[in-house]
């Protein structure tokens, strides 16, 4: 990880020194354990701020939409897929970007780590795949693989799909992972059980919209929940409105979601709203063989028609 950071700094410094970009978007060290803060730097002396470790779960593609500058951006596998999606959707031009690719080995699930201990987690250090968690009166080490975010543990695209320069050699992709066990669990339920399961899932939601705003796909100038004329969705804590928000947002991400996990990571009350988006991701994969953002040159399934598209749902 240290080597990654050094290399990212070097590349960023060179880019800014040679004026090849106006700013570089990356991460700087956070102020609490397991958090780094997305930041931009626009002078070579600031390159030393940049860091890379297993706490860079925020998807940096989120900071690109509609920007007009030339930008250097640090991108792990999922970030790069969302950058490709942005390019397809004309939110940024490929020629505006210098992508510093980072082969990713997964991000730490800070919620999971915090939940493992009674006391407060004060420090989390990682070295060579080993993560040590310390509190005021405890210390425990884990294999990093035990602490990964769920989406990272089933990720099959750890290496950036597009990049201009890599910060390290590609890592091996995970083989034989079962990506959709959680979705199948819901599929196995009857309608009432499903309804109840989602009711329970969404009960703690406070509609802060952190999931939406952390999502690189959610760049609409005005979200449908914010529309006032007409007003599509009520704004109270009514469970119907809360659910409408979540499932419509998921629909808007159909065929675009890369399961980067930014939404779940951002949620202050620990809702796994990925069970919505993942169902659509699974359907897109099964119906169209589609995985979002693998190339900026292929049109997504929802804006293309092929005669062989499945249509057995139409009577």
């Amino acid at each position: 990880m240290l080597a990654y950071t050094d290399r990212i700094k070097e590349i960023a410094r060179a880019l800014l020194t040679d004026c090849r970009v106006e700013l570089v978007i990356g991460f700087r060290k956070g102020t609490v354990p397991m958090m780094n803060e997305p930041c931009f730097i626009n002078s070579p002396d600031e390159a030393d701020q940049l860091v890379w470790d297993s706490n860079c779960g925020i998807n940096l593609a989120n900071y690109l939409a509609n920007r007009t500058e030339k930008i250097g951006i640090v991108a792990k596998g999922c970030d790069s897929r969302n950058i490709a999606t942005h390019i397809i959707e004309n939110k940024i031009g490929r020629d505006q970007l210098f992508i510093i690719g980072v082969p990713c080995q997964g991000m730490i699930d800070r919620r999971k780590v915090n939940a493992m201990f009674d006391g407060e987690v004060r420090e989390v250090v990682e070295s060579d795949g080993l993560v040590t968690v310390r509190g005021a009166d405890f210390e425990k080490s884990f294999e990093k693989s035990e602490l990964l975010q769920q989406n990272c543990s089933v990720c099959t695209h750890r290496n950036p799909v597009i990049f201009d320069e890599m910060a390290a050699d590609p890592v091996d992709e995970q083989q034989g992972v079962d990506r959709y066990a959680d979705v199948r669990e819901i599929e196995a339920m009857d309608p009432q059980q499903r309804w109840d399961a989602f009711e329970k899932l969404l009960a703690p939601c406070i509609r802060c919209y952190a999931c939406r705003n952390a999502c690189p796909l959610c760049y609409c100038p005005t979200c449908f929940v914010d529309e006032a004329r007409p007003q599509w969705v009520g704004k109270s804590q009514n469970p119907v409105d809360v659910r409408t928000f979540h499932f419509l947002r998921a629909y808007h991400c159909a065929g675009r979601c890369t399961d980067c996990g930014a939404c779940e990571r951002a949620c202050p009350v620990g809702i796994n709203m990925r069970v919505f988006t993942k169902k659509l991701e699974k359907d897109c994969f099964e119906s169209f063989g589609w995985e979002a953002g693998l190339s900026p040159d292929v049109r997504p399934p929802l804006d293309t028609y092929r005669p062989e598209d499945p249509d057995d749902f139409i009577k």
């Binding site: 803060e37 997305p38 930041c39 931009f40 925020i58 989120n62 900071y63 406070i206 509609r207 802060c208 919209y209 952190a210 939406r212 705003n213 952390a214 009520g234 704004k235 109270s236 951002a266 202050p268």
Partner: peptide, 28 residues
Amino acid sequence: DDVAFSCINCGTCTYVCPTCWCFDIQDE
């Protein structure tokens, strides 16, 4: 600009805050 760059404009900080008091009025 530096402080706000990473901000995603969600309402988390204001909703978890014990002192934030702003409200919106809606009719249904």
